[in-house]
Structures are given as C-alpha cells and as structure tokens.
C-alpha cells in the first residue's frame, strides 16, 4: 500500500501508541500462545532453552483435576458476583437512588462508590477483616446470639463472591443511573395510568428501553470479574487447598509457585480466549457507536 507523504505524516503520531501496544499487549498475547506449546520453566535446563512439546500442556490441563475445578469456580464466581450480584444490585440501587431524598442519595452513592474507588489491596484487607472468624460479621452475628462460622475457611467462595459484589457494584450502579436518567418519563407514566404496578413497569417498560446498557454492562462486569486476582489472593490465597482458586490464581500459582511457566501460560491462554470471545460479543454490541 503506497502512502502519500501527507498520509504518512498523518499516521506518524500513532507510532508511539502502536509500538507500546505491540510490545506490551500484543507481544505477551502472541508469546502466550507460543509458550503454552513449550515446557518453559523458571529454573533448570528448560528455563534457558524451552522445548516445543506440542499439546502436552493442554493435555495435562485436561488431565489435571485442579483445572476443571478452577474453571468451574471461575464460572461460579463470575456468574454469581458479576452477572447476578453486581448487575441486580446495581440496577436496584440506581432505581432506589432516583426515589430517595437528596441527603440519603448522596450518602448511599458516596459509600457504594468509595468501596470501588479504594485501592484493591485495601478493599481486600477490609473484606478479609470483615469475613474473618473474629471479624465484624461474626461480632454482629454474635450480638444476635449466633455463632458464625469461619467464613474464609468453610465457605471461601461465598465470602469472595459477596466481597466482589461489595467492591464492584458501584460500576453497575453508575452505568444504570445514567441509563435510567435517559428513560423518557412519559413512558412509565403512561404505563402507570394504564394500571401497571412497579414491577410490571420495570419488566415491560424500563428494562426493554435500557437493554443496550444492560448488555454492555454485563460484558464489562464479566470481563472485569474474570481477571479479579488481588481480592481472592489476599482473602483466601485460593484456599483452603484449591477451594477458591479461580483461573487467575491457578495460573499464578502454577507459573510462579511451582515454576511451570509453560503450564501456567496454557491456563493464561485459555483465559485470553475466554476474554476475547466476550470482547468480540461486546464490540459487536457497541459497533454503531464506533462508526
């Protein structure tokens, strides 16, 4: 493709961005696909000269009982904390905020957003202290005469799912607040005059109008939750055993704790593919805004 000199001058400002993205984003993705077919490791002879081992890592993945378990835990984590938890909480909060008085509205939205703005490691400490066997939750239950279990040990997935809903709901709340503000009031008023109650108005008028925001938000929260590492790592370390090891935790442990970089890379590749599939769906949904 022959570029005129004017055309060339126009694309020059793009060069730094292209170089950075190619080196640090595209490079690792390509390497991930390549590395997953090798026996790369952190120490030993394979660290210097990784050998091509074909599909062995993937065969090992399927044979390893930890991998299907981890995949399942990831699906449970993403579905319950993002798809259901954050989205339902978010739309509920957005709706409630609209009918609240101003001081309540600003208190509630500030508190919810604060949990989201906090650095992830601080949020993780706060959640850890809350769910610890001697933490705030069990103190409150104790006040009611109930002896709470050791949440982080006996129900680690429940604890990290609730923590992730707490941490991430603000995002959905903000997206849905903006979406609800765009719904023409005439529509809901007309439905109200026709005798529709609150739930009916939500299901038949509001939700269909904001369906684009819903699909966009579902994709974004799914992708964000897919890559949650710090929250789980600090709260449970993926344990006890591997009972809360989602894919990011498993990939990290295989690659760095057990020095199986090739194997960890194979897990990473699976995550990249899952993320890519979701991204394609998301970009298709957004297409009219790009053009």
């Amino acid at each position: 493709m022959a570029l005129t000199s004017r055309g060339a001058a126009r694309v020059v400002p793009l060069a730094p961005a292209v170089v950075l993205l190619a080196l640090f984003m595209l490079g690792p993705v390509v390497w991930s696909f390549y590395g997953s077919f090798t026996n790369a490791s952190l120490t030993g002879p394979a660290a210097l000269n990784p050998e091509w081992i074909g599909l062995d890592n993937y065969a090992a993945l399927i044979g390893d009982p930890d991998f299907p378990k981890s995949l399942w835990l990831t699906v449970v984590f993403v579905f319950l904390s993002a798809v259901v938890g954050q989205n339902v909480m978010g739309i509920m909060l957005a709706g409630l905020l609209r009918s609240a008085v101003k001081p309540v509205r600003s208190i509630a939205s500030t508190v919810v957003v604060a949990a989201w703005v906090l650095p992830e490691i601080v949020a993780a400490f706060a959640a850890y202290a809350f769910f610890h066997s001697e933490g705030t939750l069990n103190t409150m239950l104790g006040g009611l005469g109930i002896t709470g279990p050791d949440w982080l040990y006996s129900t680690p997935m429940l604890a990290v799912i609730i923590a992730n809903i707490w941490r991430g709901t603000a995002f959905s709340m903000m997206v849905y607040s903006a979406a609800l503000a765009e719904v023409p009031p005439e529509l809901t008023e007309a439905a109200q005059l026709d005798g529709a109650n609150g739930m009916q108005r939500l299901a038949w008028v509001t939700l269909p109008v904001i369906r684009r925001s819903i699909s966009t938000n579902l994709m974004l929260t799914t992708l964000q939750t897919l890559s949650v590492f710090t929250l789980i790592y600090v709260m449970t370390g993926g344990g006890p055993g591997t009972d809360s090891s989602t894919l990011p935790i498993l990939a990290y442990q295989e690659a760095f704790k057990f020095a199986q970089v090739g194997y960890g890379t194979a897990i990473a590749t699976v995550m990249i593919i899952v993320g890519a599939v979701f991204s394609v769906i998301y970009i298709r949904a957004l297409r009219p805004e790009v053009d």
């Binding site: 984003m25 690792p28 993705v29 390497w31 991930s32 590395g35 994709m219 992708l223 897919l226 890559s227 949650v228 590492f229 894919l247 990011p248 990939a251 990290y252 690659a255 970089v261 960890g264 890379t265 897990i267 990473a268 995550m271 990249i272 993320g275 890519a276 979701f278 991204s279 998301y282 970009i283």
Partner: peptide, 10 residues
Amino acid sequence: CLPITAIMVP
C-alpha cells in the same frame, strides 16, 4: 477488554 491478569505470566 483484555484481562491484564491473564497476560501476566507471559
């Protein structure tokens, strides 16, 4: 959209 955690090993 790319999950950054996924590419940390590579």
